[in-house]
Design a protein around this nucleic acid. Structure first.
Length: 195
DNA sequence: TGCACGATAATCT
DNA sequence: GATTATCGTGCAA
């Protein structure tokens, strides 16, 4: 596939609000630089972890782990979950305020292994991080600059955006803070949430 | 198609 | 010592 320049999005283009950013990120592009070349995907599923949200890692204040959630919007927050999976987030508020957007699924555009079906290779936060080789070493990096990982403008218009509750939570489980592109084959989660 | 279950380790109480 | 923003497998229907 022929791709446009993939220049980083300027920070001023990102909404400064976790829920607004989560919705806005649907359809934008994620670029990962690797030794063998670039892996490029379209963000099709996100979740917001907003200010005052008991399900957010930032809820009880800043700690060594969640430090990156308190950076200015547009920085990466990367953490390990269940002892074996990595999750990628984008910080979402001004410096000093803890909030983030979990990137849950990508539609692969270029550079991915052909061994895994495109609909599955980056469907779900754990598989996404695995496919892009995102680890804790990327925690705190600026996603609005060219580097190992950055955000770029959409390569084509986004479709209709759906909303649902977030996946896998026990607290604040009823809040409609998950966003996705309707009809994308790369979505994670139970089918009933993807309508 | 949809569950229950276990793997596995950092983080926080 | 409890909890966890996940995933693959296995088994039932």
């Amino acid at each position: 596939m022929r791709l446009p320049a993939l220049a980083p999005l300027p920070r001023r283009a990102l909404p400064v609000d976790a829920a607004a950013l989560a919705r806005w990120l649907i359809g934008t592009t994620l670029v990962r630089r690797l030794p063998e070349g670039r892996r490029v995907g379209r963000i099709v599923e996100t979740e917001a972890y907003v200010v005052g949200d008991a399900a957010s890692h930032a809820y009880r204040g800043e700690t060594p782990r969640n430090r990156a959630m308190f950076l200015a919007h547009g920085h990466a927050y990367v953490y390990l979950i269940y002892g074996m999976w990595t999750c990628l987030n984008v910080s979402a508020e001004p410096r000093g305020v803890g909030a983030g957007v979990l990137i849950r699924a990508l539609e692969p555009l270029a550079g991915f292994d052909d061994e895994v079906a495109p609909a599955r290779v980056a469907s779900g936060p754990g598989r996404l991080a695995l496919a892009l080789r995102v680890g804790r070493d990327l925690d705190g990096i600026d996603l609005c600059r060219r580097g190992p990982l950055w955000l770029a403008p959409p390569v084509r218009p986004v479709g209709a955006i759906g909303t649902s509750v977030r996946i896998g939570l026990s607290r604040e489980a009823e809040r409609p803070l998950r966003f996705f592109e309707r009809g994308s084959p790369a979505l994670s989660g139970p089918r009933r949430l993807n309508a």
